[in-house]
Amino acid sequence: MSSPATPTHGQATDVRIAEVVAACKRYGGSSIIALAGVPGTGKSHIGRIAAQRVAGDPLRVREVQFHQSTTYEEFVEGLRIDASGAIVQEPGLFLEWNDLALDNPELKWVLLIEELSRANVSAVLGELMTFVEDRNRPFTATYSRRPIRVAPNLVLLATYNPSDRSALDIDNALLRRLRVINFPADSGQLADMLAAQLPANVMTRLSGLFSSIEQQHPDDFQDLMPFGHGIFAEVRQESPDLHELWRERIRHMLRRPLVQPHPFTDAIEAAYPWRDPEYAEP
């Protein structure tokens, strides 16, 4: 019996998925594969699909979202109080998944970390900062004192927004362990999402929005564009969807009370024709 065909997500999207899968297979045994892009550039969507393809089974993919209060004790291992009131050592999410990978070396396992830079990454990863790239060397766990080796068949895949202020705190020690794949806004993936729902003239104007901003801000477009093509994912028709998207989401990203407007505000306002609810194509 032939194996089922790999589902397609559109030409441009499939190219990005394949790129991430290839990086995971080539470098996932010694680096953290990091997908970097502003919100709405598809990095989480593509990361989940790629993770499942690398693992070969969604049950061997685990997701965690970092935040400001994420700790080493949660992620690697810590101390807990059990039902009897005793203090016991308990593995964190990473060690649980790593142990499964060590026990099943013939299989691939993936840990997908969303919003990597939101946490104090150096503190959360602890010893992993050193041993994620040298997986033949065991380290001694802080609380259990047991020797631990990072499984060579465990892939660490992460996403982060390089424009977050917290991303500026990523130090050089962590950057050396990252393989960064950039995810800019992409008109090809935009077409993959919407070409079946919207007429060609509307798609042309939507794609023109991104190309216009990139032409005006070529050096900063990738890192400072306030949104990516994914912001249009729920659009099903030109009106009222594109008008409501402006009114309810986009304009609030550009102009906020008591805060300087986004540096691309004037360019985005000029390039987005659906700001006027009475807009009609000439």
Rank of each mutant, 00 (worst) to 15 (best):
A83W: 09
H229K: 06
Y279G: 06
T41M: 02
L79Y: 13
A270S: 15
E244C: 15
A123F: 04
P240C: 06
G56K: 04
V155Q: 00
P199N: 15
L198R: 03
F264Y: 13
L224T: 14
V124P: 01
V259S: 04
E63P: 12
G126L: 11
N153P: 02
R275P: 00
V20H: 09
W109C: 08
G188C: 11
R137W: 03
S212W: 10
A167Y: 01
I81E: 13
L107C: 14
I49P: 00
L154N: 04
H67K: 04
S163C: 11
P257N: 10
P184M: 00
L116M: 10
I81P: 05
P39I: 01
D14C: 03
V121D: 06
V110C: 07
N161V: 01
T130D: 14
A5N: 12
Q89R: 11
I87C: 13
E214V: 03
N201P: 13
I17D: 06
A191F: 00
S31Y: 09
R205H: 10
L194W: 02
I17W: 05
G208Y: 10
E96V: 12
A55Q: 00
R53P: 01
D223M: 11
N172E: 15
A22F: 01
V121Q: 14
N120H: 13
D192N: 07
L190Y: 03
A5G: 14
V38H: 00
C24I: 05
T130P: 00
M225N: 10
N104F: 05
I213A: 03
S84W: 11
Y272N: 10
S163P: 08
V150T: 11
L209A: 06
L209R: 08
T140D: 08
T13E: 12
Y72P: 03
R137L: 15
H45C: 07
N161F: 01
A158P: 00
K108L: 11
F94S: 09
A233H: 03
S122R: 14
C24P: 05
N161R: 05
I268Y: 06
K108E: 09
L156S: 14
L102P: 03
S187A: 13
E63T: 15
G29F: 02
A55G: 01
E133L: 09
A158F: 02
Y272G: 07
A51Y: 06
I113L: 09
E127D: 12
Q52I: 08
S144W: 00
I268T: 09
G10L: 02
E244Y: 15
P7C: 03
P263A: 00
F183N: 05
L116Q: 05
L107R: 11
F264M: 15
Q52M: 12
R177M: 01
T71H: 01
R26N: 13
A22R: 08
S117G: 15
H9S: 03
F221T: 06
